[in-house]
Computed example of a mutant assay.
Amino acid sequence: MYKEIIERFIQAQNEAEAAYAAAASFEREQLRDHAAHTYAVSIRSQDRTASELEGFCISLAGGIVNRARREFAPPGGRLVLDDSAEHKRAGLDLHQDLRKGKTPDLDALWCSLQATYGAGGGARLAYQQAAQHLVRSFGLARRKEVERTASAVILRKTTHSEASGGSRRVGYHSQQPTAECLAALATFAGKAGENELARRLNSIGVHTFEYSYRQKLSLPGLDLVFFKDLWEFKFSHELAEQLMLFIGEYGASFMAERD
């Protein structure tokens, strides 16, 4: 399928090149007495055509990996894949293939992604990635005591904020780690069957989210309390137990590395 897409693009390039050449030839025939630099229709160079094809193939390959991220991620969860690593796994070298005049085998890239992440492989990796983000975000370790109260289990994440009018907003350097933490929690929530919690977590746009000092955001089974330089996550006991089981199953090796 992907090979045919590339072949049709190349065919379109050839047809466009022929059409431009015909238009350029007609203009030059009609305006024989004009200086060459005044002609309006330019003829495409081979370098420009090759560059356009390369950009198209890169974009198409990126779309294939994005398709894998969507299709093989668990419901409500996030699967992180590195484009370069997936190209290497599939034995794909776009630039070298194009230099040799070969059509890049993007069908092989999709087959490699299917074989690696299909049949639950993508979900397992997404859960492992989520568990690792949560261990890192909350500073969890095997010998660290988790704060428990009569009503909640409390985890804290350093999240620096900055003033935004009369409110606060996540600071620039904390935006990406905080977004990853929330995405990891959403992935866990989906695995735990807490679909509404996953939806609500995924709906928080960290880059534009504003809050007040000590404001509380109540979610299903989880309250978030916002301070100047940290966020406090108050899990219900039931949800916290599921979270610890999740981390134990999918993040045990990562926690062991931290000991």
Score class of each variant (00 low, 15 high):
Leu185Pro: 02
Gln176Asp: 15
Tyr211Leu: 01
Gly205Asn: 12
Glu162Asn: 08
Arg168Asn: 06
Tyr213Trp: 06
Arg168Cys: 02
Ser218Arg: 15
Arg169Pro: 04
Ser164Asn: 09
Trp231Gln: 02
Ala198Cys: 09
Gly165Gln: 04
Gly165Ser: 08
Leu219Gln: 15
Gly193Cys: 09
Thr208Ala: 08
Thr158Glu: 07
Glu196Ser: 11
Pro220Ser: 12
Ala152Arg: 10
Phe188Pro: 05
Glu232Ser: 12
Ser167Leu: 12
Glu194Cys: 09
Ile154Phe: 08
Leu230Arg: 07
Asn202Asp: 06
Ser174Gln: 04
Thr208Glu: 09
His160Phe: 03
Asp223Ile: 15
Val170Trp: 01
Gln215Pro: 04
Arg143Thr: 15
Thr158Ala: 13
His207Arg: 07
Ile154Ser: 08
Leu217Asp: 14
Val206Ser: 04
Val225Lys: 13
Gly193His: 07
Ser161Ala: 15
Ala152Phe: 14
Arg168Glu: 04
Phe235Cys: 12
Ala152His: 14
Glu194Phe: 07
Leu185Met: 09
Ala183Gly: 05
Phe209Tyr: 15
Ala189Lys: 05
Val225Gly: 11
Gln215Ile: 01
Glu145Arg: 10
Arg143Phe: 12
Leu219Tyr: 11
Glu145Asp: 10
Val170Asn: 00
Asn195Met: 02
Phe235Leu: 13
Ala183Val: 01
Ala179Ser: 09
Leu219Arg: 12
Ala186Tyr: 01
Glu232Arg: 07
Val146His: 05
His207Met: 05
Gln175Tyr: 00
Ala192Glu: 12
Gly205His: 13
Glu162Tyr: 03
Gly221Met: 14
Leu197Gly: 08
Asp223His: 13
Leu201Ala: 04
Arg156Glu: 10
Asp229Gln: 06
Leu185His: 02
Glu210Ile: 09
His173Tyr: 11
Leu224Lys: 05
Thr158Ser: 12
Ser174Phe: 03
Asp229Val: 06
Phe188Ala: 05
Ala183Pro: 01
Phe209Arg: 12
Ala150Asn: 12
Gly190Met: 09
Pro177Lys: 00
Leu219Glu: 11
Val170Glu: 00
Thr149Val: 11
Lys216Ile: 15
Arg214Ser: 14
Trp231Val: 00
Leu155Ala: 09
Leu201Arg: 01
Leu185Thr: 05
Gly190Thr: 11
His207Phe: 08
